[in-house]
Design a protein around this nucleic acid. Structure first.
Length: 224
DNA sequence: AACAAGACCAACCGCCACCAC
DNA sequence: AGTGGTGGCGGTTGGTCTTGT
């Protein structure tokens, strides 16, 4: 598929400083996009796909480097509970962070917690069976899962009724309004939230607010 | 000091959607 | 309507760094 001449033996592996400079210069003059012509314009022996990735994940101005903050971690956890593995969507609400970064972070931090939670749940269920007691109620299960950053059937149901259009609507609305958010602003009158309000799980309904609700860097934040 | 295991991160791959022709 | 090019996304891999023993 695409991305320049497919038969060409593109260079792979880590980028060197000179390559970064060539790519940066190219983007400076031509803007983002037209990645397949980077190699012909710059002499860079990299596929367009590789160039795009390097730019988006590493060279693009405004990228934040360094550790994910606790605030960002909270946002990631909540948005993941809401959208699942929609890394690029989640990344939109974390200025300066890339989808790749968030994805990596999730895998190394939350996956662990999640698997241990599953293990705990399994143990609890075994205990229930052993003690011939009724199963944990859905409510308790949900609360435990949300607390632990895991997912439940309830969440899956909620995610099912909160498709991409909802997120797009939110994006469009916020962009049109040019909204800046601070800690005083706690609610937004938007169909997205009304939709979320129908969700049977109050925890999840609460979690439909984060994009607009969260402050960023401790003193207000912005979208995009 | 040496080694192993785990954590972290950059980069690649395959797939899909969109668009122009 | 079909096809190919392009852009983008999510999953995975592999190398490097850090930490514990």
């Amino acid at each position: 598929m695409g991305w320049g001449a497919p038969k060409q033996a593109w260079k792979k592996g880590p980028w060197i400083h000179e390559e970064d400079e060539l790519l940066t210069e190219y983007v400076k003059f031509h803007g983002e996009g037209r990645w397949s012509s980077v190699s012909t314009s710059t002499g860079l022996n990299r596929s367009g796909k590789s160039c795009r990735l390097r730019w988006v994940n590493y060279l693009r101005p405004g990228l934040k480097r360094g550790h994910i903050t606790p605030e960002e971690e909270g946002i990631i956890a909540d948005l993941h509970a809401l959208w699942g593995n929609k890394w690029s969507t989640i990344a939109r609400y974390l200025p300066g962070r890339t989808d790749n970064e968030i994805k990596n972070y999730w895998r190394t931090h939350f996956k662990k917690e999640r698997s241990s939670l599953k293990q705990q749940k399994r143990q609890a269920q075994m205990l229930n069976i052993e003690q011939q007691q009724p199963r944990q109620t859905d409510k308790e299960e949900t609360a435990a899962a949300v607390k632990g950053g895991g997912s439940t059937e309830h969440e899956d149901q909620c995610m099912a009724v909160m498709p991409e259009e909802a997120a797009s609507l939110l994006d469009e609305y916020l962009m049109n309004e040019g909204l800046w958010w601070n800690q005083q602003q706690q609610q937004v009158n938007h169909p997205y939230y009304q939709h979320a309000g129908n969700c049977s799980n109050s925890n999840i309904a609460m979690q439909t607010q984060p994009a607009a609700y969260y402050s960023y860097g401790g003193e207000g934040g912005y979208i995009f």
